[in-house]
């Protein structure tokens, strides 16, 4: 295998990993746009959704039926979390919000351990083995499947936001909650909807990543860091940025692991750390974000 094919092969694998980060980053960005909160519990909610899918399949449901049921459960779950956990501290200082979502993180993680135990579970791979060969670069069906699912989610979200009346209302709330409320929009319900959507998108990332990582309560901890890096790189208020950021982070991670000796396989988690630091120091609003103008 020539060096170029090798590089392309690594890049393809990076894109596959990046698509998963992109979907979790998308969930983070959705919530950040609506509520200004960075949800530290996003990965854990996705993990919980994955357990729901696992439970459904363990009771005999086929994957492609379990998936929509899981997404529906996640949607309702996300709305409930907003209503029950987040609403009481709406508008509180950032420190309070961070601490509440961290509390939610700890709680959900432990609750999953309590219900399903901390032993690792096998999660079935929904896509067939093997793949196609493109000029010496083998692309697995699972990679293609992940990319396809994430692209479909992106497309659906785009249609929802740009071409439906609900989407219009949601964009109004994200742009200016006060004006939206004054023009008769029930802002609280829209926020619930936003959290529900984010939980659904997060659930997609959880279900996609579970076959690769094995299912256990701490599965999403690492993925969350990559998603943070992706959202930071793309800009925390840009859904497109989240996806582009996710893909870039995935590629950077894979390439650094393969070609930079110091990084190797074990220190890959340093890559998102470096990306977050560099982006925040050089261009804090990210690639696609708008710089916030602040009046003291």
């Amino acid at each position: 295998m020539s060096a170029v094919t090798e590089l392309l092969q690594q890049t393809v694998e990076g894109v596959g990993a990046g698509a998963v980060y992109a979907s979790l980053a998308l969930a983070l960005v959705l919530i950040h746009r609506f509520t200004g909160i960075v949800n530290f519990a996003q990965g854990e909610l996705a993990m919980l959704s994955t357990y729901v899918a696992w439970q459904l399949m363990a009771s005999g449901m086929p994957f492609w039926l379990a998936l929509p049921v899981t997404l529906a459960v996640s949607f309702v779950g996300g709305m409930l979390v907003e209503r029950v956990v987040i609403r009481p501290v709406e508008g509180a200082p950032e420190l309070t919000l961070v601490i509440v979502t961290v509390g939610l993180f700890i709680f959900v993680n432990a609750a999953a351990g309590l219900i399903w135990s901390f032993t690792v579970k096998d999660f079935p791979q929904p896509f067939p083995d093997g793949g196609i060969d493109l000029a010496g670069v083998s692309v697995g069906w699972s990679t293609l499947g992940i990319i396809g699912v994430v692209a479909a989610v992106m497309g659906l979200l785009y249609l929802l936001f740009q071409h439906t009346s609900v989407g219009l209302v949601m964009r109004a709330v994200a742009a200016n909650p006060t004006s939206a409320r004054l023009s008769g929009i029930r802002v609280g319900r829209v926020l619930m909807l936003g959290w529900g959507l984010a939980a659904t998108v997060g659930a997609v990332s959880g279900v996609l990543v579970a076959p690769l990582l094995f299912l256990e309560p701490n599965m999403m901890g690492g993925v969350l860091i990559y998603a943070f890096a992706a959202a930071t790189l793309g800009g925390f208020d840009s859904p497109v940025g989240a996806v582009v950021g996710g893909l870039l982070v995935g590629i950077a991670e894979t390439l650094a692991g393969a070609y930079v000796d110091v990084v190797g396989a074990d220190l890959k988690i340093g890559v998102p750390l470096v990306i977050i630091l560099v982006v925040l120091l050089v261009r804090p609003q990210g690639l696609f974000g708008r710089a916030a103008v602040e009046r003291a």
Binding site: G103, I106, F107, V108, N109, A110, A111, G113, F118, P217
Partner: peptide
């Protein structure tokens, strides 16, 4: 898992 549940709820 109980410590985590208690911790999370208490926070």
């Amino acid at each position: 898992a109980a410590p985590g549940v208690v911790f999370g709820l208490l926070i």
